[in-house]
Design a protein around this nucleic acid. Structure first.
Lengths: 188, 188
DNA sequence: GAGCAGATTTATCAAATGATAAAAAATCAA
DNA sequence: TTGATTTTTTATCATTTGATAAATCTGCTC
């Protein structure tokens, strides 16, 4: 049960049977239909999700314009960190782009396990460290790569993203307008 | 002793006396002269630094061009996360921009304390969480704010940065050329 | 304080990207 | 399939930013 989640954990570090059971006890499987919001803008993030399949994105509005902050694929964790760790309402929402099966984990209950299971806290720390590194690399690409370079390296790192996600979402993720993205794609 | 460091920790969570002593036992105070490298490009990051005073920056080269990834001020932690957490050599260097007193903490020894002192691991987790949130916000500003907006919000969030740091470093931090920054400043 | 080196600004032109509008293509529901 | 809606592309023009070179400015050394 929750094998996908366990396998995900194992990438970072295996957990003992009791720790796994403690986590399973607070897991709730849910299914969200395509294009539905998993979490709305303004809600405080109190749930950590694990995506078993499907695609989701975190987005926000700048001057009424929808901007995709990030994409999340099967077998990954998704949560709005700035809200989860601060307890403040998030300016961001989570939308599912393909009908998705998820595991919902109440963050309060999850954090409460840290005292009894230091191994869980350690696992979580490693997950955050990896997410942190990802964002550092993303900053690097936004800092001085051209829009075209960013598009091409996205193609390389996530080849099927283009097929599964509307281009309008990809454009804002890359920090450009949809029209610019279309122009870049036309060059080839 | 190491009161500055202890005060920094307290922002996140206070540590017990034994935990503090264990950390102090692996702390080494060092002083680095202005403009010297604290860590060179290519070195693997095995030290976590705490800046007691002065300013430092993390930088890297893209196409021979020096780019500032981030600035770090007194009373903050500085380390090259992508190397520290992966054990791989860093493409980045750390340079001190004002003669600085630092506390150097061997990362291996520090991580080794996590088993005996879960509270230290928890503290470290919280520090990483905060750093992670910072990078997420930085991505947001790079994604769709204009160079001028980024400059102005930097002025607001770090007013004295401009006086203490050469503009050429600030320009690359903002993701623009120095000439562009100069132009933006001239508008006012 | 003169001279030097590096930092910053200014000027000019080129390239990349944005804004807007309209056309074409794809998707979806009836 | 048809028609409506959304997505993507194309076109045009405006704006921003980059590249390069040169002119100032600043700080440092002697």
């Amino acid at each position: 049960m929750f094998l996908t989640l366990q396998r995900y954990f194992n990438q970072f570090q295996p957990l003992s049977a009791p720790a796994l059971e403690a986590i399973e006890a607070i897991c709730k499987p849910i299914t969200i239909q395509k294009n539905k919001n998993l979490q709305h803008i303004g809600q405080t993030c109190q749930t950590i999700y694990f995506l078993e399949n499907g695609i989701a994105r975190i987005y926000y509005l700048k001057d009424e314009i929808d901007i995709t902050e990030g994409f999340y694929f099967e077998n990954s964790i998704i949560a709005r960190a700035e809200s989860l760790f601060t307890g403040r309402p998030s300016r961001k929402g989570i939308q599912v782009l393909e009908t998705a099966d998820l595991i919902a984990i109440d963050s309060q209950k999850f954090f409460a396990l840290f005292d009894a299971y230091p191994e869980i806290e350690r696992l979580f720390r490693k997950i955050i460290e990896a997410a942190y590194i990802d964002t550092i690399n993303r900053i690097e690409s936004l800092q001085f790569n051209s829009a075209e370079e960013r598009y091409k390296s996205l193609l390389e790192s996530s080849p099927d993203l283009i097929n599964r996600v509307p281009l309008k979402y990809i454009a804002s993720f890359l920090g450009i307008t949809q029209v610019s993205l279309s122009r870049i794609r036309a060059v080839r």
